[in-house]
Amino acid sequence: MNNRMVSSELKVGIMILIGILILFYMSFRIGKYGVFSEHGYELTAVFINAGGLDVKTPVKIAGVEAGKIKKISLDGFKALITLTIRGSVRIPVDSRISIRSQGILGDKFLEITPGNDQKILAQGGKIQDVVEAPDFDQLFASVNGAAKNFGETMGELKGIISEKEKANIRKSIENFQEASGDFKNLIKENKGNISRVVSNVDETMSGLKLMVKDVESGKGTLGLLVKDETLYNDAREAVNVLKTISAEIDQGKGTLGKLVKDEALYDETKATIANIKDLTDGIKKGEGTLGRLAKDDSLFIETEKAAKKVQKAAEGIQEMTPVTILGTIFGMFF
């Protein structure tokens, strides 16, 4: 009897052990609240509408489960949701929480979009940035309203538009279609040209840059000419006078004699040359309008921006192509 009893106890013991092992294995695999699951911390969030959420609904970050809803309760007339987040997951203070669903019929879940703040939410912290779920009932209601409005508008339109107008509209759409087709072709054909234009502009700009640099160092005529209008006029006058003199010389009136003969002219010329010298010195020192312009960086930057705008405009033209196609298609259905 004793032997038999020991063996029956042994058999029972082995069987219970197998049962417990299976239970442990299954608990471990499911691994939700088993002994081995790590401890988490709690966070809260307040939603206006927590419809579709349940206790144990997963909380995900980037689609990966990071915790679960622990409790849903009322806080005034809002839903206070308590989450259990895994201890290893750190959530910045400025994170955003939203109710998402897997497809229209899928289960709801909470998605946390982490923020950038250095501060981390601690035990009992509250996620402030809450995005309400689009309530499907409301959504459907508004879609319904919009559809109704659309239908009414269409009805009115139908009433307004007679056959003649219809034909006109059709024609204009055809025209538009044609035009957009032409435009498309144009762009297609001139793609090379446009890009060439752009690169030219680019080149021009770099030339301009170079020029500005030259101006800065006081080289070239431009500097000399722009300082002020009187100077310019004086200079022109002077040049004209010189031209006249040259002509007179050319006419054979005797250069040297004439110069000697007219002392005043000589003095005038001399003074003009001295003035020009003064002007050049002024530019070199950075005085006057041109000098300032030449020294100032902002001009260069503005110029560069302008060039970029030109480039963008060119790109815009390229992007417009698909929009045009869409327009064409829409036109076909209309």
């Binding site: 029972v12 069987m15 219970i16 197998i18 049962g19 299976i22 299954m26």
Partner: peptide, 13 residues
């Protein structure tokens, strides 16, 4: 009382 759960967990598995 004790063995039915053990048999059941085996059956589940």
């Amino acid at each position: 009382f004790f063995m039915l759960p053990v048999l059941t967990i085996i059956s589940d598995f």
